[in-house]
């Protein structure tokens, strides 16, 4: 555990496995402890197959850990039922996907505002402010397909932050960007998280990304299942 007093993320004894097609059990995650302090920014270095996505899904409550505690903003995601995890995620966790996953039928503003609606409060003004902050203030009504890749990433960043989450998870956030856009997007993500006070956990296999963080954790070492070569 990283020695900080106020943790927004605290994993202890977390294990997650899946049933293989042949019926056997495959362990994907086995993490003894891992935590993240409020406002902290950490990079998780992980090659393909080290359980990156599963870890993020467990933290976000998209899937539930088989054993252990997954505390996110003081709630144990492993102990909540699915609906409660959804509600908690909506309010306290921002998620930036590698492929951005913007809703193609919705404008930039709607993409951001919708995320706030599921948290129970339509923060349209805040969505506008965030989009302006990421340089998209002039393109509020643009559909994603009318935006460049870099612009889509900016919208995704704004969406992750609209509910002022305690924790932002970014899964290969620069994976689809060229070098110039990647640097700009990462800087924007880090800056906006810093400004809003959100902790940031970035998982990436890209050394250029990882090296920009003061605290870097090697997922292959953190995840004992990956170290055993069992992760899928």
């Amino acid at each position: 555990m990283h020695g900080m007093a106020e943790a927004v993320l605290d994993l202890r004894g977390v294990r997650k496995g899946f049933a293989a097609p042949d019926g056997s059990r495959v362990e994907v995650l086995d993490i003894a402890e891992f935590s993240l302090a409020r406002g902290e920014q950490v990079a998780l270095r992980g090659a393909s197959g080290t359980g990156k996505t599963t870890l993020l899904h467990v933290i976000a409550g998209i899937v539930r850990a088989d054993v252990g505690t997954v505390k996110v903003a003081d709630a144990d995601m492993a102990g909540l039922d699915e609906a409660a995890r959804d509600a908690w995620r909506a309010k306290h966790v921002g998620y930036v996907f590698q492929t951005f996953n913007l809703l193609q039928a919705f404008s930039a503003l709607e993409n951001v505002a919708l995320a706030s609606m599921f948290a129970g409060d339509a923060k349209v003004e805040r969505a506008k402010q965030l989009l302006a902050r990421v340089g998209m203030g002039e393109r509020l009504d643009y559909l994603p397909r009318k935006l460049s890749i870099g612009q889509q990433q900016r919208v995704a960043v704004a969406r992750a932050l609209v509910n002022a989450p305690a924790l932002v998870l970014a899964d290969e956030p620069t994976g689809n960007l060229d070098r110039a856009n990647a640097d700009t997007a990462l800087a924007l993500l880090r800056d906006t998280c810093r400004e809003s006070g959100a902790a940031l956990l970035v998982v990436s296999h890209d050394e250029r990304v990882v090296q920009q963080f003061e605290r870097v954790i090697d997922l292959a070492q953190l995840n004992r299942a990956a170290a055993l070569g069992a992760a899928r």
Partner: peptide, 15 residues
Amino acid sequence: REMAILRALGARRGQ
């Protein structure tokens, strides 16, 4: 995929 994105954003199954 759209549904999965919405779920990831916090939409409940029932919603």
